[in-house]
Nucleic acid binder design. Structure first.
Lengths: 355, 355
DNA sequence: CTGAAAGCGCTAACAG
DNA sequence: CTGTTAGCGCTTTCAG
């Protein structure tokens, strides 16, 4: 049923070598022959078998992108960047979803290793160095996305998450908040850790300001809703006047649960809220969410550039680490409290400080 | 550099056939040999070459999923359903994004045809029957997702979009709205057409009710924002008291632009809003959006089932068409207008009817 | 410019 | 239970 070069060759009265040349180097074949062969190809509906071609070439023409969560708009934006840049260079993109699971990440890396993809872009969960090193030793370049390798061994394109965390916290402090709550997790995700670290830096410089941490099991809307209940209690108890969520999904989920119910929390009157990523839904939330913006599409496109560079230059060249700076986008969720409202909790706010 | 079965065989002092057996039928090899070979495999870091295996097998172990828009949470939910069901059967999933472009859809279908994937799940834009038929004639089963084929030639899993459109419109009519605006596009997308058709059916049965249509270039947040401005003018002119958007992204985008600016429109006081898909952000929007829910994960999982069934039973068996029923989820965006507000436009509302 | 032939790495008979 | 061998479909020298 499936038609191969051989049949095309027979039918066109040429050899398989010539058919192959028509396909790959048509300029080196007599025009008349090219035409005749192409005609037969159409007639027979011949489609080259990628597996065979790849077997010879030793490598496929696809690059893989493994993300932490396809349901997170940030990553789909990155994926778009990757895809458009990759297709310009003739590569197609295989998108895989590790879902924040180390195991699934590993399964996909194995799969892509067996497939001998042309390269792997990965937003790794932990630091599965052995696995990544093995890919590379097999000639498959690896570029870390949205993450710098702990030990500088892989090229990477990332955003300064520590700076981003600091931006977010500083903004909250600047607008008069003092009891911050950081919400994020799992801790093994470097982005979460860095954003927290940045926030802590800002908080540590303001006397009397405190930073509590609530861990979540994942960076999703659903986890945000759960965390929202925790935050609600903290706010009600006067222990929290600002929340910094490790990403926008969490922030939006939290907002949803905090605003609901009979004991609704007001945002930003009772508590300020800042998220991370600036996904398009952040601006569309009940209370538009202040967020730390990352250049998602650019991250993806740049990652492809680094990958192609590594392919050309060879593995042992100097690794590049490209780091973008995040940007704070202020919206209503973190507006300074109107004096009237603010006053009510002002005393409680200053108490721990002894004032 | 890359190590093959041959080297493993040499090092373990066995033949390549035995190595292959250890890999694929270990029960038919003496335990001691299995162990020795496995040890060498680890030592050498051998990883089987998928291309070679596939070349022999004639087919890969991946199934492809081509969606209209990866940035649409509805499709990522479908993708999750596909992925989990596929992995249970040992298939991996290649996700591709046609981005509502016929051309890109075609490029991906070609790619997957060359890759001889085990099957293709596609949410087609138009009706590229020739392309799909060719895939099938090549032994690659095709299942339509979220869409019934015009001519019954492919198995499909879909949701009754006409019923969904009717549900939405009926709900708006039931809550007293009469001047409906349908927003969606491009028209070539069947889902859009069907939802409109359903809405029209409901509207046609209510004397005095009208349905206008605004076309959009895509089903995205950004397009929704544009359409929101159009709707704003219509509402202000008293020509519209309800909007039915073809999906939630549009609805949320519209809401965002209508609620903003100096001339803000109130939802649901001035206009009711209903979306489609019930993505998780719908409930989290400024005004929680009433939406028509589709069982997204189930759609994906079922599509995989049909695909595997077609593989087993052979192409010529009776095609299955599975159709789920949508469900209306009522939220604040379509609440009936409070009497006070409603009264203002009530006269205008009844005028066309002559009452 | 075209043909013949040698594999790429793997699996599936078929012998032993 | 294990070894030998013949391709899967393609590209790529190397001769003509």
């Amino acid at each position: 049923m499936p038609v191969s070069v051989k049949e095309v060759a027979e039918r066109a009265g040429v050899s398989v070598g010539t058919v192959s040349n028509v396909l790959n180097r048509p300029e080196s074949v007599k025009p008349a022959t090219v035409e005749r062969v192409n005609q037969v190809i159409d007639e027979l509906g011949y489609v080259p078998n990628a597996a065979a071609r790849q077997l010879r070439a030793g490598q496929s023409t696809s690059i893989a992108l493994v993300v932490l969560d396809v349901a997170n708009p940030f990553f789909t934006d990155v994926a778009r960047g990757v895809e458009s840049r990759a297709s310009e260079s003739g590569f197609s993109v295989l998108l895989a979803n590790s879902d924040e699971s180390v195991e699934r990440e590993s399964i996909y890396l194995d799969l892509f290793e067996r497939q001998r993809v042309a390269g792997v872009l990965v937003s790794p969960i932990g630091d599965d160095l052995p696995h990544l090193l093995r890919l590379r030793s097999r000639g498959i370049p690896v570029v870390l996305v949205d993450r710098v390798s702990a030990d500088d061994r892989f090229p990477s394109v990332s955003v300064d998450d520590v700076a981003g965390g600091r931006l977010a916290a500083q903004h909250l402090l600047d607008t008069g908040r003092r009891k911050l709550l950081f919400v994020g997790g799992p801790q093994k995700i470097r982005q979460v850790e860095d954003r927290l670290r940045g926030a802590r830096k800002a908080v540590d410089q303001v006397p009397g300001a405190i930073l509590e941490v609530v861990h979540t099991a994942a960076l999703t809307l659903a986890e945000g809703r759960v965390a929202g209940e925790v935050a609600r209690a903290r706010v009600r108890a006067g222990q929290c006047d600002a929340v910094f969520a490790a990403n926008d999904l969490l922030a939006i989920g939290m907002q949803q649960s905090m605003l609901g119910g009979p004991d609704a929390i007001r945002i930003p009157a009772d508590v300020a809220l800042v998220g991370y990523d600036d996904i398009s839904f952040a601006a569309a939330a009940v209370v538009p969410v202040t967020s730390v913006r990352q250049p998602s599409g650019l991250i993806g496109a740049t990652a492809v550039d680094l990958l192609l560079a590594e392919k050309d230059l060879g593995v042992d060249d100097r690794r590049q680490h490209i780091e973008f700076q995040p940007e704070l986008v202020v919206r209503e969720s973190s507006a300074a409290r109107p004096e009237s409202t603010r006053h009510g909790t002002a005393t409680a706010q200053l108490t721990p400080d002894g004032t």
